[in-house]
Write a protein that binds this DNA or RNA. Structure first.
Lengths: 256, 256
DNA sequence: CGCGGCATTGACTGGTTTCAATTATCGTGG
DNA sequence: CCACGATAATTGAAACCAGTCAATGCCGCG
């Protein structure tokens, strides 16, 4: 299973943005020039907290990161998961105050880029604003799909849908291997993202396993039957706004 | 109850953007110069549909608009409500293909601005990009809060939370009157937004009424006890990213 | 007056939570 | 190599919140 990323942070960023908006040489160079700092953070470490007024954005180089809201009584709702190439708090560029938390799920490598540097980049290459803006819009598209899941699907469909999403997102970053991919979140964390209890999620996983749709264990998700899984999830990949890549089949899902 | 908006579309847009980013005269003039067309649309009319590739954005001048996802079997999930001053599909500026629908809830007046014109505006006044980008980020913040509601609050809290949100959003546009505000969505539509059935929503409304928190009827929501309502909702207005306005009390909630 | 849309209520069902207990799994140190 | 503790996964039984189905009431309107 591919894991980790060996290039520099700006290379990863350039690769990510290149995925949707074709970069020219000047843009690519400007991105590669961005100054940034890298930190290795342990698991379950808050990167940004509710109420903070960040002066930098973070880019996930390696590991899993979650965005979550904390409610009273220690409950939490995980709003989204982020993997290598994602920029969880781009929004802090224009929203002063954090209304939620961002934390590592696993030990992770995070690159930090100052807002000032990004604004400078935007002045040099105004066309990159659109690319970044687009990233935040895709984030919002993921939120919308989660709302639909929580509002109108029951547990089985919710879990199936999240698995489809996380598999395809990792696939587009070359992190999958056949129909398997890393799945770092524990059952309790998946439950917190899906609006379920870990007890019930566990039962749903058993159902999915017994029906021959997916197996989850040891931090690895394996999709046994994509078509059935997608059917249970009523999954339509449109909301991912990924360019090109076809939906996986046994032929297409082999390592890239 | 204030209802409707009498100025021009661009005036409303300028007023909206002025709320967060102070506009200078050039910016204001550029906005007021934007060419746009106005359409009066009947209730329950799709403005943009799943799969469309819009070449214009729409601005709500008057009425209620909803964003929704359609599932199989005629089910739908309403993702968000929009009122005067909101720009529901700003996202289409950078996401080619619609992954959901936008439709009027009530008879509405909608202004349409071509993407090209917005891009021209951005070239003239690059500082306005941030203001618009920010609008989409606030939209995303609303989504996040909805996810939290659907995932971790039960019906009573969900309903209370939505009422708090819609009241404050309308208040910031001067559409409230004391602790009352328009509430155009029918019970079935509120239920579709909250992941409930209309039957259960109806029971929740009765509970809220009997507890003396809110009354809903005739398209008007009246908040009887803000503090208690906010407590039931665990409402924290941070996510609205509104500037200035204090949370209402019996003193502050009088007509502006 | 009768019709259609919307709100309301009752009885019953069922998906999910809650509480509690048991069983893997894994890293660590003796 | 095994004992140990901590974390995570799994299972059972009972309670409950919300959904489903079905019927009634309300009200404006042609």
């Amino acid at each position: 299973m591919p894991n980790g990323y060996n290039g520099t942070g700006t290379e990863l960023l350039a690769r990510k943005l290149d995925g949707c908006v074709r970069l020219n040489e000047a843009e690519r160079a400007a991105i590669l020039d961005l100054p940034y700092t890298v930190r290795n953070l342990p698991a379950r470490h808050d990167i940004v907290r509710f109420g903070d007024q960040p002066s930098q954005c973070c880019l996930v180089l390696q590991g899993w990161v979650s965005r979550y809201a904390a409610l009273s009584e220690g409950e939490r709702q995980i709003l989204s998961f982020y993997i290598a190439g994602d920029i969880p708090d781009l929004q802090s560029l224009h929203l002063e105050r954090m209304d939620h938390h961002i934390a590592t799920l696993t030990a992770s490598t995070i690159a930090f880029v100052a807002h000032d540097e990004l604004h400078r980049l935007f002045r040099r290459c105004p066309s990159l604003i659109g690319a970044m803006w687009r990233e935040t819009l895709i984030d919002a598209a993921h939120y919308r799909e989660r709302i639909t899941s929580l509002g109108r699907r029951q547990a089985l469909g919710r879990v199936a849908h999240l698995f489809c999403e996380l598999y395809l997102r990792q696939r587009s970053m070359g992190l999958t291997s056949g129909l398997s991919c890393p799945m770092a979140p524990k059952q309790a964390e998946l439950a917190d993202a899906l609006g379920l209890t870990s007890v019930h999620l566990n039962r749903v996983l058993r159902t999915l396993r017994m029906r021959g749709l997916v197996t989850l264990g040891g931090g690895v998700l394996t999709i046994e039957d994509w078509d059935e899984l997608a059917a249970v999830a009523e999954f339509d990949p449109t909301f991912l706004h990924q360019t090109g890549l076809p939906v996986p089949t046994h032929e297409t899902a082999v390592p890239l």
